[in-house]
């Protein structure tokens, strides 16, 4: 409760700052940023206990990918995600071909390398669930297993998922995977099992324990690339929003008007 009040205060302050002049504000962004870091650390320490209040729509989690910083050949984010969420617990069944396994194994985040047809410019970027504000997967799910949490995270309630895979048909980003095989040794934080659909959930277990970022973001930073920024899209002072003000960015398949929570710059 105290946290929420604190957050509101912060928001109010920032709103005033914007009103008084956006340009000025951006001018002093560095200073404000520095001021933000300290409370951020304290917040983190305070919030490192399990969540006891329902998530609210006061926050909306999102990612910003700066493709200029995303390195060719680096797959630190993918490996970190596989590790964090236990995707690497799945192993290729014997008798199965490599190609088929590649097509059937779970992938929550993947690296994509693009070339512009006109200019030949190469772009690298990670693709994952884009956490739409109006997610098609939620619309089509017959049982309501695919849902959007109040804080903007789009995920699957595996208790309700019947494995019909209609959400995978409907996802414009091909972000979802179906678990094709029996699974052993699941992590406590990430329950998963055969016959359900899953996808990136912005490390929801980390969110609920009040941690600062996601596995992919940490891994990218550890590699020194800092290509992915995680944060609250509704907090004008969050690092992700500061960065969004700074860089030109867009959504993938913007024409669908899904208002994605994952934004890309340089695409």
């Amino acid at each position: 409760m105290g946290k929420a009040t604190e957050m509101n205060d912060k928001t109010d302050r920032t709103d005033q700052a914007i009103d008084s002049g956006r340009r000025e504000f951006i001018g002093v962004a560095a200073g404000v940023g520095a001021a933000m870091v300290a409370p951020g650390v304290i917040l983190h320490a305070v919030a490192a206990t399990p969540r006891s209040q329902p998530v609210s729509s006061d926050v909306r989690w999102g990612l910003l990918v700066d493709t200029a910083k995303c390195a060719d050949g680096c797959s630190a984010c993918v490996e970190a995600c596989n590790e964090e969420n236990g995707l690497n617990l799945q192993t290729k069944p014997e008798r199965e071909s490599d190609l088929k396994w590649d097509a059937q194994k779970s992938v929550w985040i993947r690296k994509v390398k693009l070339q512009d047809n006109q200019t030949g410019r190469i772009t690298n970027l990670p693709m994952m669930c884009q956490h739409c504000e109006h997610p098609p997967c939620v619309d089509v799910c017959p049982t309501g297993a695919s849902f959007k949490r109040a804080d903007g995270i789009v995920m699957v309630d595996r208790h309700l998922c019947i494995g019909c895979r209609y959400c995978m048909m409907a996802c414009p980003y091909k972000a979802r995977s179906f678990i094709h095989d029996e699974l052993q040794g699941q992590l406590t934080a990430v329950p998963r099992g055969k016959g359900c659909v899953e996808s990136c959930n912005l490390c929801v277990h980390r969110r609920d324990y009040g941690e600062a970022s996601t596995a992919c973001v940490d891994a990218c930073a550890a590699e020194g690339h800092h290509a992915i920024v995680f944060g609250d899209l509704k907090d004008p002072n969050s690092p992700i929003n500061q960065k969004l003000r700074e860089l030109p960015s867009r959504q993938i398949r913007e024409d669908l008007e899904l208002n994605t929570g994952v934004r890309y710059s340089g695409v």
Partner: peptide, 11 residues
Amino acid sequence: GRTVLESGFFD
């Protein structure tokens, strides 16, 4: 307008 050169997920 872009060609996918590499992908970890059959894009």
